[in-house]
Amino acid sequence: MDLSSINPILLIASLMVAATPILLAAIGEMVVEKAGVLNLGVEGMMITGAVVGFAIGVNTGSPALGFIAAALGGAAVSMLFGVLTQYLLSNQVATGLGLTLFGLGLSALIGKPYEGMKSPVLQKLDIPVLSDLPVVGPILFGHDPVVYLSLILVVLVWYGLKFSRAGLILRAVGENHEAAHALGYKVIRVRLMAIAFGGACAGLGGAYISLVRVPQWVEGLTAGAGWIALAIVVFASWRPWRVLLGAYLFGGVSVLQLNLQAAGLAIPVEYLSMSPYVITIVVLVFISARGQHGAPGSLGRSFHASG
């Protein structure tokens, strides 16, 4: 065993890349849940984004177009969920699970001709001078644009929810939809917009896997990343900065495990792959023992403007 062969700077840089898909999906899901909607279909939306992004990326030769298409694709399938739960008042848990299964099947169907193909390369930002700085260079300035986009999204979501009027309305809808409705806010419309945003983020996250991290398409590519994103939202008690922390923590686990192995220390794979969920359960126990869980008041409840 030789732990000194693990370079902490490169480790952090590669865990940022590994965590970006779940960070994107989790920050989107957090906004959805802040609006009072529980969408368990993150995995389905991610994998739809992964296959759509890959297909468009390969056909156009442009990863950027791939990402845009992935966001649109993710938002489009999320609207299935939106229409079913918001207008037809179907059960959100069941519909979300259905969306996951649907997304897995749909992506396998769309992706069949694309198996084994190479994706176009998304260039890393190579900022002169800055990228070559010791320590901070590889960590902060050596990534591709989507890593920065994910970080900017976290900042925007934090700022938007906390300081903007639109964020206030969204939180009001999520905390108490009847009160928000009584004040004249369009609960359904706000929630649909939030769901579409969550779908677009999940789609981007999926495309990051198929276009950058792997980069190729195979059936079942996301391999449970969507469920980890859902766990992160709870772990973070619905706060953007903690979502970032959780994503890097959970993303780091997989990278760390492989690095420990390469350094000669073998930890059974099973322990590390269950650790995100174990941590989430521990956090849940901790916050319920404290008595305040921070979940939006109307989370998971259907709204119908009656009487």
């Binding site: 062969s5 693990i6 991290r213 190729q216 997989s254 690095n259 192995q261 073998a266």
Partner: peptide
């Protein structure tokens, strides 16, 4: 030789991560 056991025959995401980890450690 630095060896990583991936415990899979086919998982592109994991294989990519394993390759990156090995490269990060100087391979």
């Amino acid at each position: 030789f630095k060896i990583i056991w991936a415990y899979t025959w086919f998982d592109p995401a994991k294989e990519a991560d394993a390759a990156t980890a090995l490269i990060d450690q100087g391979a």
